[in-house]
Every structure is written in C-alpha cells, then in structure tokens.
C-alpha cells in the first residue's frame, strides 16, 4: 500500500472520529470548578510550616503517650496471667492448722489466692 492510499484510509478514519463535544459533556466539564477544590499550594515560609506541622506533631505525641500508657496496662495484665499460674501450684494441706474460709468459692479473687498461698508458706 502506497502513501497516498494510506493517507486516504487515514482521512476516512479522521472523518469518522472527529466528534463535536455534546452539551452534556460540555456542561459536566464546566461544572468541574463547582464540584472540585483546587489543590492547596504548599508554601515554605516558617509560619505555614509551623501551622502545617504543629497539629501533626501534637497528634503524634498524644499517640506516643497513649501507647506508653497502654503498654503499662499490658504489663499488669501479664501479672494477672502469672497469678493465674500460681493457682495451679496452690496445695491445701488438710493437716495444717491454717484456717481457710469455710466457703472456698470466695477464694476466686486472685488476690485472695495469693494471700492464702502466703499463709500456707
């Protein structure tokens, strides 16, 4: 196929694919400024940087403090687990003269169990 013939084919394609923008498309494109905000331009003056960074740093600090606080709460939870293990080791010697409450159900409290263990020792 020579160049002239190829150009004829391309012209046919160009004619068939040169649409005019319809009113619906034009309206939707014209509405873009009403539907979208422009991106904020970053400026590098100290005041803008301070305003930009301050809330972020505050939030980060708050999260760090909260993490430390939650971390300490986690260690007390570990202590409870360790206390629960003690539960298995407790043996009540029927011959000993240590007085244990008549109602053993009251010993469900973990601190009570530790107290009893200390008494046994």
């Amino acid at each position: 196929m020579n160049n002239q013939k190829l150009n004829n084919y391309l012209d046919a394609y160009g004619k068939a694919n040169s649409p005019e923008a319809g009113p619906a498309l034009l309206n939707s494109i014209m509405d873009i400024p009403y539907e979208n905000d422009q991106d904020e331009k970053l400026s590098w003056d100290p005041k803008s940087i301070f305003i930009f960074l301050m809330p972020r740093i505050s939030a980060l600090t708050a999260f760090c403090l909260m993490g430390i606080y939650m971390g300490s709460a986690g260690s007390s939870a570990l202590a409870e687990d360790e206390a629960a293990e003690i539960d298995y080791k407790i043996t009540f010697d029927p011959n000993s003269k240590i007085f244990i409450s008549d109602n053993l159900n009251t010993l469900l409290d973990i601190e009570g169990l530790i107290f009893v263990e200390e008494k046994i020792k």
């Binding site: 040169s18 498309l25 331009k41």
Partner: peptide
C-alpha cells in the same frame, strides 16, 4: 477519540483531564 477509537471513553478521558487542569493549575 482517534487514539481510543471510542467516543464514550474519550469523553471520560476529557472529563478527567479537565478535572486535573482545575485541581493542579495552581
């Protein structure tokens, strides 16, 4: 339209292109 061979897709592309113009022109 010539690049995609399809008017509907071309119209979507134009919408997105002009959205970018508006958003990032600053």
């Amino acid at each position: 339209t010539k690049l995609l061979g399809n008017t509907a897709d071309a119209e979507e592309v134009m919408q997105e292109a002009f959205t970018r113009v508006w958003k990032y022109s600053n």
